[in-house]
Simulated assay, not measured.
Amino acid sequence: MIKTSQAVASAVLVSTGLFLAGLSGGTALADSEPSATTAEGNRPQITIVGEGTVSTTPDIMRLDTGVEVRRPTAGAAFTAARTAAADLTRALLAAGVAARDLRTDELTLGPEYKEYPTISGYRATQGVEAIVRDIDDADDVVEAAAAVGEAVRLNGISFEVSDNRAPLRLAREAAFRDAQNRATQYARLAARGLGRVMEISEQNVTPPTPILGFAAAVDRASISPGRRNVSVSVKVVYELE
């Protein structure tokens, strides 16, 4: 589904004795402002910023998990954390996560104090990031991690689109159509024809941004990636006839 924003359009029509109503001496519309002029002797031009947005479904989940343990000595804490992390890794592999999609992203060991400088014990952590490439397996992977034991920590999940090239192409097409439609309307209001395209420049690209907090996800019957928007803005300069 393609959605085009109605946000930003800037247009200026300039020629001898020709001004589009509202563009002379101020802002034409609430969402537009003057942005261009023409050189003497040239045909007038119109500059438009079009926007296109495409909604897409993420197909990858990232699970931020890990282990945390406390022991009386540093050595015992470190060994316990490494053992728990190994158990967690085996559980994730058994749930279908590929070995190449597992990454250690944290490893800590430090003292805890009852009252400084008196040490009460030692805390060790090891973080594991797991990429789930089949969203249908998301629930099973999370449950497998949680079942490892009390040392496991589930810190959050996020969703991504593995290949955003197709939605970006559609968003660019929507942005260009939006710019063309706006330019056509302004040209008609000025009783002019819309001529050739003089310049095209991509202004802004907003890729699909993940994020769904873990607490929000587990409240659902099943973990869902929802939808993500890919947005593109394009500036197009047309010649007026």
Rank of each mutant, 00 (worst) to 15 (best):
S5H: 09
Q6N: 12
V8P: 08
V8K: 12
S10D: 12
A11Y: 14
L13A: 13
S15N: 15
S15F: 10
S15K: 15
F19A: 14
L20D: 11
G25F: 01
G26Q: 02
T27V: 13
T27Y: 13
A28P: 04
A28T: 00
P34Q: 09
S35D: 14
A36T: 12
T37D: 15
T38W: 04
A39P: 04
G41W: 07
G41V: 06
I48R: 06
V49M: 09
G50N: 07
S55H: 06
T56V: 09
T56F: 03
P58F: 02
P58Q: 01
P58C: 01
D59A: 06
M61D: 08
M61P: 08
T65C: 10
R71E: 15
A74C: 06
G75Y: 02
A77W: 05
A80F: 06
A84N: 09
A84P: 06
T89H: 12
A94V: 05
G96Y: 02
A99S: 08
R100W: 01
L102W: 08
D105Y: 06
T108H: 02
E115Y: 08
Q126F: 02
Q126S: 03
G127T: 10
V128K: 10
V128W: 00
R133C: 00
I135G: 05
D136W: 00
D137E: 07
D140S: 13
V142T: 09
E143W: 14
E143C: 07
E150K: 15
A151N: 10
V152G: 10
V152F: 11
N155C: 05
I157A: 07
S158C: 06
N164G: 07
L168R: 08
R169T: 09
L170N: 11
F176E: 13
F176W: 10
D178W: 08
N181D: 04
R182S: 10
A183S: 02
T184F: 05
A190Q: 09
A190P: 09
A190D: 06
L194P: 02
G195A: 05
M198W: 04
M198G: 09
E199C: 09
S201F: 00
E202P: 03
N204C: 04
G213I: 00
A216P: 05
A216K: 03
D219Q: 12
P225R: 03
P225C: 06
G226D: 05
R228Q: 14
N229K: 15
V230W: 07
L240R: 04
E241H: 11
